[in-house]
Amino acid sequence: MKKFFAQCYIWLLLIVLYAPIVFIAVFSFTESKVLGNWTGFSTKLYENLFTGNMQGTGSLMTAIQNTVIIALIAACVSTILGTVAAIGIHNMRGKAKQAISLLNNIPMLNPDIITGVSLFLLFVFLHISQGYVTVVLAHITFCTPYVVLSVLPRLTQMNPNIYEAALDLGATPFVALRKVLLPMLKPGMISGFILAFTMSLDDFAVTFFTRGTIGLDTLSTYIYTDARKGGLTPELRPMITIMFVGILILLITINLRKIRNSKTDRE
């Protein structure tokens, strides 16, 4: 009985939570310009999205491209910068270590709007004209701390003797780094990369303040301007649906595999 009520509560909450997205997904299969007005089943919006045959498409397609490219560059750079930094921080002691860890925590604790405003003021102060480069730099700023925090635990868990052994057995520091250290850090680097990538994809406020006035749009800023103009571009509905289904499949497969692995470990 208790279990029944518990399950009811969970599923009720889930249904309410997912109602908006399901609603968008349902209405992505009709042609109507106005949301909530069903004019028969159609996949036209999907075709439009993929062929780019719609009004103002150029800008939606460019916004999607910008979002992905910025996220990729930011995630790659922060993974490299963050991993190198984590190795350095791991070997530091005392005050310097505390100071750098504190600075590393600030972008994660700061609300987006503060990060955005402060970087905006930095670029104004340095007279750097804002655009693509400043957005990428800003994204690297708030992504790298997550990489550092994903890689550091791997370093603390690692047995330092393995690295020393490689050196004793004649490996040069570079070979030891590539063959011993990096493989052990890889899981941390991968989860850091994924975190950085999704943080960058999701970002709105920081991009908003650092993109300048050259008309650079990412998906978030595109949606923002679009919604403020009044009508939501109908092609955003299939867009949202595709992203939603993609993430759902990805997360469920990752988690089911994790659970299956932990079960086989136990047996």
């Binding site: 190198v84 930094a85 190795i87 350095g88 070997n91 530091m92």
Partner: peptide, 10 residues
């Protein structure tokens, strides 16, 4: 001396 690796990030 690996601690210097943190320098660029610092």
């Amino acid at each position: 001396k690996r601690s210097t690796w943190a320098l660029p990030y610092a």
